[in-house]
């Protein structure tokens, strides 16, 4: 099961990533990126970390990329510059390539008895909410808070830069 999830998630992640880089329209790229994030969530699930998998979907696919999409749509507007007219055939082929490679590897790996190193004994409660929060709020609380402050500073900075020309407080 884990092996299957690992290869499937990996294929989704790689294909989505390549398609996101290669696609011409920003909205398409964002959609592919969401697809890739779902693959990443599958990888987390394969690693016995359902909490991280759900957070990956909730935060990255559900919140961050929605904001990205929001901004892209705002800037691009509803008019598409005819990119749906000429579908580029090599793009899906390119995106398929890692899937094919992974399928080949997976078929070999699944045939052997002990495929990949999933037999590691996991510590109790690994990847569960309690364990993750313990790590974040106890073991690495300083780093965690520093990141929060860094993000806050970045947000304040963005707000200051984003204000209109006349209202900059230092002018």
């Amino acid at each position: 099961m884990e092996t299957f999830l690992f290869f499937f998630g990996g294929a989704v992640l790689l294909s989505g990533g390549i398609a996101a880089v290669a696609s011409r329209s920003a909205v398409n790229a964002a959609c592919w990126l969401v697809f890739a994030f779902l693959g990443a969530a599958g990888l987390f699930a394969a690693l016995h970390a359902p909490f991280l998998a759900v957070l990956q979907v909730l935060v990255y696919a559900g919140a961050v990329m929605v904001l990205f999409l929001f901004v892209i749509m705002m800037l691009e507007g509803p008019v598409m510059q005819g990119e749906s007219r000429r579908p580029r055939l090599w793009l899906p082929l390119l995106a398929m390539a890692p899937a094919v490679v992974i399928a080949v590897v997976a078929s070999r790996a699944l045939r052997t008895a002990a495929p990949v190193g999933f037999d590691t004994v996991l510590p109790d409660g690994f990847g569960q909410p309690l364990r993750v929060s313990w790590l974040l709020l106890q073991d690495y609380v300083f780093a965690f808070q520093m990141i929060a402050i860094l993000l806050l500073v970045a947000m304040v900075g963005a707000l200051a830069l984003g204000r209109s020309e006349r209202k900059r407080p230092w002018q």
Binding site: V27, C31, V34, P50, F51, V54, L55, V57, L58, A61, G62, A63, V66, L69, F70, M73, P78, Q128, P129
Partner: peptide, 24 residues
């Protein structure tokens, strides 16, 4: 699921895409 409620929040957040992409 052990993370049941988060699962609901995650899936619900994906619902935004249907509306946003459909409109776009």
């Amino acid at each position: 699921l052990k993370v049941g409620m988060l699962y609901i929040l995650a899936i619900a957040s994906l619902g935004t895409y249907g509306v946003a992409l459909g409109g776009w």
